[in-house]
Design a protein around this nucleic acid. Structure first.
Lengths: 367, 367
DNA sequence: GCGTTCTTCTGAACCGTTACCGTCACTGTA
DNA sequence: TACAGTGACGGTAACGGTTCAGAAGAACGC
């Protein structure tokens, strides 16, 4: 009997109940509310379940009935491969995963299908069985993000613009970068080259006009560039060359640095909007035999471990805390809605920034 | 009418159908099979759905009916915080996430509850609404892993022992480490100190006897130590000091190196079972003013980018490909079951390994 | 002896969808 | 006019559980 049931089709709570001659409720209770039935019966249920190969209540059916999935959905930067290579993104993921784990919630990474597949672009978002969404650093016009907003679920965005009625966590990218810019100015840097990550969903490796800077689809990059502009002032900023790279890699940073230096060998500083890119700039400078910071100053942003190890001047941001904050906001939603958390940053002055070498005032370099 | 329905309770496919005066099937088809109904009716359905605030078919109900969740479950190293700091683990995750994304599948990170919570330890595994599981580098006796095996779903394990009837992907840790050991021996190293990651679920920071090495609960560490033993031979190996560290961090590597050097300042080489630990060893050596490789040789394992950048002698393993292979194995299950994939590794001889300094034969160091 | 309480278990109503098969109107053909 | 073929839509029955309000019987107090 038991065998045939096993062979015919997977055992269910109902078939198990029938086999035992008890009600479904009782079997359900055996798993979910041990105090609701006698220990002996419970043992018998569990024992029979094992014999029949019943693996316990089906998670999906349970979710349907209880109206909770026990998981949080994560919409990550579309280009997954780069996301995992960005220590800041990984740090965020770590914090978020930790927060979810502590709450016993799963973390579902929602697949972002390629743009090409127009009709089904956001299908995965609609298919995700989750109790809420965290959206991390997607471009403003991302169709997946739009789909997420359509679902009637709690939502937290991170490293994105503050949106009406949507919980938010982030840092003051603009202010922090302005602080770093101020540091450069204090050191006398005026001929500065800037390296930034991609500003839109399209690949655009090269110089960036001010218009494109302001129209950037990625909030974080837009804000950081604006911060530098704040520090330098509009007129000086218009003379600053900004180079964009689609791929967020050390090699990209190197090639961007090369492009800037080829254009103006007299640059006294290279400011990158991420540490990864700054590492690439350092590599390129080493290749060219230029000393840091004696010949050229280099700065980054993020405060990744490797940057810290080599003493890069950068802004340290609490990436893990961002993840934790996001999970908290999502999971502990109780009081008045629409909260916005801005975490503190720290300007880390390392060994890669120094006084600008002023060509026509050599004595100045000693400052 | 529409308003009241919206206020009373969230709209469902049925309520929408009632509102429209069509059958539920038709509404369902409007979403899932556009070719099954006239474009006009479909438009009308979608339009009414928008007005009623119906967000489309409920993912959970759909999953229950179609018997597929559209997601892959991932059981990751219990200590999540360390997993995300291990570039090898992150690389695996990247490959896996990419493979899932391409297949349009979600990736659900299953929360591993703390051991303390005995009864519910594996509850999250039972709650996971997934179509299959990937298990990555968990200890042999992990209760979550046991729970995964109970679920009647496809399963792939990675960086774990090969199990009867379970798909598997990994590398030849033992052989690769034996190769690295051979390299050390060729260079004349005999007084070697070894630094390894934790060997069990318990914290045991310190020296490791051979018995514990063989009883290690983590397959990868066990295999790598065994590989070194293969290279050195049993008798020489018994003289080699192995130090274990629970936390997988650069600092741990440094402190382990310090412990080894304090014990035997005459060590000519430090072999770590991971690049992260090796980086720590390099740091400690720098602190002590010892040159690498002139005074001490250092080797790692994994081939993480930073190691490559500084020219660490190590074994490069294709971590991303491991992830991709796991996703392939899980998602393209069709032919004869129980496949095992072993990916190739590459011995990377960098600038951190050199000939052993032989105390009583100084000329030897010039070799 | 009788009402009360407790324990243990049952019945039936959902949860929101999709699969399967049937129906019905309409068209073209002989 | 009859009939098969086709496109568009409807009805019914799962899918596998959870939950709540009780029923049946035992234990208890007075």
């Amino acid at each position: 009997m038991a065998r045939s049931a096993k062979l015919r089709r997977p055992a269910t709570l109902a078939s198990l109940a029938a086999e035992l001659g008890v009600s479904r409720t009782t079997v359900s209770n055996a798993y979910n509310r041990p105090d609701q039935l006698s220990p002996e019966l419970r043992q018998r249920v569990l024992e029979t379940a094992r014999q029949l190969g019943y693996p316990g209540p089906d998670p999906v059916a349970r979710s349907l009935r209880t109206r909770q999935a026990g998981a949080v959905g994560l919409l990550f930067t579309e280009a997954l491969s780069y996301a995992f290579r960005d220590p800041a993104a990984v740090g965020f993921l770590e914090g978020l995963a930790l927060g979810c784990e502590e709450a016993g919630q799963g973390l579902l990474m929602v697949p972002a299908s390629p743009e090409a597949d127009h009709a089904h672009t956001a299908a995965a978002v609609h298919r995700a069985a989750v109790d809420g969404f965290v959206v991390y650093s997607v471009p403003d016009d991302d169709p997946h993000f739009a789909a997420v907003q359509q679902r009637p679920l709690p939502l937290v965005v991170c490293d994105q613009p503050i949106l009406e009625g949507v919980d938010h966590v982030g840092i003051d990218d603009r202010g922090a970068m302005a602080g770093l810019g101020g540091h450069l100015i204090e050191l006398g840097h005026r001929r500065v080259g800037v390296i930034c990550m991609r500003l839109g969903r399209d690949r655009n490796d090269g110089l960036v006009e001010v218009a494109r800077q302001h129209a950037a689809h990625f909030h974080v990059q837009r804000a950081r560039l604006a911060g530098l502009q704040d520090a330098f002032g509009p007129e000086e900023w218009s003379a600053v060359r900004v180079v964009e790279r689609f791929d967020h890699t050390v090699e990209s940073g190197a090639s961007a640095a090369a492009q800037l230096l080829d254009h103006d060998p007299g640059l006294s500083a290279l400011a990158a909007t991420s540490d990864i890119l700054a590492l690439g700039a350092l590599e390129e400078l080493r290749r060219r035999g230029l000393r840091v910071p004696e010949d050229v100053t280099v700065t980054g942003f993020d405060g990744i471990p490797e940057a810290e190890r080599i003493g890069l001047t950068t802004v340290r941001q609490p990436v893990r805390e961002k993840g934790r904050a996001a999970s908290r906001l999502l999971l502990e939603r109780a009081e008045g809605r629409c909260r916005s958390i801005s975490l503190p940053t720290e300007l880390m002055i390392g060994q890669t920034s120094g006084p600008a070498k002023v060509a026509d005032a050599p004595w100045f370099s000693g400052l």
